[in-house]
Amino acid sequence: MQFKNTTSHFGLIAISLHWLVALCVFALFGLGLWMTELDYYHQWYKQGPWLHKSIGILLFFVVIFRLFWRGLTPPPKALSSHKPWERKIAHIVHLLLYFLLIAIMFSGYLISTADGRAIEVFDWFSIPASITSINNQEDIAGWVHFILAILLIGLAALHALAAIKHHFIDRDRTLQRIFGK
């Protein structure tokens, strides 16, 4: 397998980025739901959000690089067996997934920085606040963050179901391609 994508195959970088982002999204979703319900005296009450924010910020840089990489080396062409409506919906879903990712990370950033505090990324560096003047910013951003995250998980599930449909019903190599085959 080569690093770059070809017209028929995904490259190693695109495949790694895809699975890294997928893993982080599901981990952050679970962690986010869990950590906001914790008791005040729970061991993870402070650690959970710290980890969620640190990984979230790092994921933002990963997604930015992923978009850059996608521009540099476009994904392989759709299989000839894919119907026009499948291609169209797949394309829209892919764009929406990217849009939701960015919007969720940005809204999360606006929660934690609403009072002007920076976000600490592990103990490595911090991201300063920028927009702080929206009325009840942390509440609005929190609501947006939550709703969009649910939409993203729903859409990711649809994306996965579609891949499974291609594998077991259409019996084409759509799903196999994202494993490098």
Binding site: P49, I111, S112, T113, A114, D115, R117, N136, Q137, E138, D139, G142
Partner: peptide, 16 residues
């Protein structure tokens, strides 16, 4: 009550 302010956005969100 929504104007609660404890000088920490995440805590204020929780207080609301």
């Amino acid at each position: 009550t929504a104007s609660v302010d404890s000088n920490h956005a995440e805590r204020d969100k929780h207080l609301r």
